[in-house]
């Protein structure tokens, strides 16, 4: 039931995704602030399908050269392509403190045992500025294979970006900057090079009192 209703292709399903800041309070406790978060969901067949977005509407927000979003989509499979609109929660006090930890955690599951590679490209005006590539092996748990990228440190570029964004006095200014800031995550089967998931992330700043929010869309070409 999760196919078409959550971030899942026929080969891989995203279970959880978060980017966070941990601030120690004392030696035994810390505060965890979620900038963005996709929690566990359990869609059923009665739930509506995700809305779709024509991928051509966002091509220029992501790398367009050889191997870019268009090439990836043309290669397929099309059911692996998603757009996530995040409303990021920046309601946190940031200080330059080396004891702070900025991290990203994500989890995936599959019915297949494989080795996955996750490429995360941060883009400014559609051009890649930094890329992180991670390789994960499967763990067999409860009848399926689970992949965990646990507490992957956020890169310096992203930490500086968040700090600079926070220094802007008005939310509309932050959103203006975020209009040209995107992230493209491509999860691939390391051995077959098959695209398992391709997720395009775009951002605004949350105005909610309930923290980070998101919408998920299927990317299609009508």
């Amino acid at each position: 039931p999760w196919q078409g209703r959550s971030i899942a292709s026929s080969k891989l399903r995203m279970l959880e995704f978060s980017a966070f800041l941990e601030q120690p309070q004392d030696p035994e406790t810390f505060n965890k602030h979620l900038f963005v978060h996709i929690g566990q969901s359990n869609p059923s067949y009665s739930d509506a399908y995700l809305e779709s977005v024509d991928i051509r509407q966002i091509y220029d927000k992501f790398p367009e050269k050889k191997g870019g979003l268009k090439d990836l989509f043309d290669k397929g499979p099309h059911n692996a392509f998603f757009l996530v609109k995040f409303w990021a929660d920046l309601s946190v006090n940031l200080q330059d403190d080396s004891s702070f930890f900025y991290g990203v955690s994500s989890q995936y599951e599959s019915s297949e045992n494989m080795i996955i590679t996750s490429s995360t490209k941060v883009c400014s005006f559609g051009k890649q500025v930094v890329e992180k590539v991670e390789t994960e092996y499967a763990r067999f748990e409860n009848g399926r294979y689970v992949f965990r990228i646990h507490r992957s440190p956020l890169c310096e570029y992203m930490i500086n970006f968040i700090h600079k964004l926070k220094h802007l006095p008005e939310k509309y200014m932050m959103n203006s900057v975020l209009e040209n800031f995107t992230i493209l995550q491509v999860v691939t089967n390391r051995d077959t090079l098959e695209t398992l998931l391709c997720i395009a992330y775009v951002f605004e700043v949350s105005t909610s009192e309930h923290g980070a929010q998101h919408h998920i869309y299927r990317l299609v070409k009508d």
Partner: peptide, 24 residues
């Protein structure tokens, strides 16, 4: 690209794209 430099607000995107969920 045909949509280059076009503000996101002027692109063909679902209405929900601009509606922040208010769920907890």
């Amino acid at each position: 690209s045909a949509v280059e430099q076009v503000p996101m607000r002027k692109r063909q995107l679902p209405a929900s794209f601009w509606e922040e969920p208010k769920l907890t």
